[in-house]
C-alpha cells in the first residue's frame, strides 16, 4: 500500500502522522467521539480550528455556564483547568505537526 494512502486513511484516527496518542493528556482521545481535527463543515466544530487559548476560554466558559451549550457544559465540568490546558495545548501541537 502506498505511504500516501496510508497517511490519508490513518489521519482520521491518528490526528497527525508522527504524533501518537501515547503522549496525549487524559481525555483528549475521547473528544474525537464527536469532533474531528480537520474541518469538515458539520454542526460540530473541528478541534483544529482553535488556538490553545480559544479552546481554554471556550471550555472554561462552558464549565462556568457563562456560554450556553447543549452538551459541552456537561462535559467541561469533568475537567480541571490543568486538564483543559493540556488538552488544548496538545490539539494545538497536533495541528502544527
Amino acid at each position: 500500500m502506498s505511504r500516501l494512502l496510508y497517511t490519508l486513511v490513518a489521519t482520521t484516527l491518528v490526528v497527525a502522522p508522527g504524533l501518537t496518542w501515547a503522549a496525549s493528556p487524559p481525555g483528549a482521545a475521547s473528544c474525537l467521539g464527536c469532533h474531528t481535527v480537520a474541518a469538515e463543515g458539520g454542526p460540530v466544530p473541528a478541534l483544529g480550528s482553535f488556538t490553545a487559548e480559544q479552546m481554554v476560554t471556550a471550555m472554561q466558559a462552558f464549565r462556568s455556564g457563562s456560554r450556553p451549550a447543549t452538551v459541552m457544559n456537561r462535559i467541561a465540568k469533568g475537567f480541571s483547568d490543568e486538564e483543559i490546558k493540556a488538552i488544548a495545548d496538545w490539539y494545538a501541537r497536533s495541528k502544527s505537526k
Binding site: 482520521t12 484516527l13 464527536c34 469532533h35 458539520g42 454542526p43 447543549t70
Partner: peptide, 16 residues
C-alpha cells in the same frame, strides 16, 4: 439542535 448533533455524531464516529 440535539437531533442534528445526533446525526453528526453518527457520521463522525462511523467515518472514524
Amino acid at each position: 439542535q440535539e437531533a442534528t448533533y445526533a446525526e453528526a455524531w453518527f457520521k463522525t464516529i462511523t467515518h472514524g
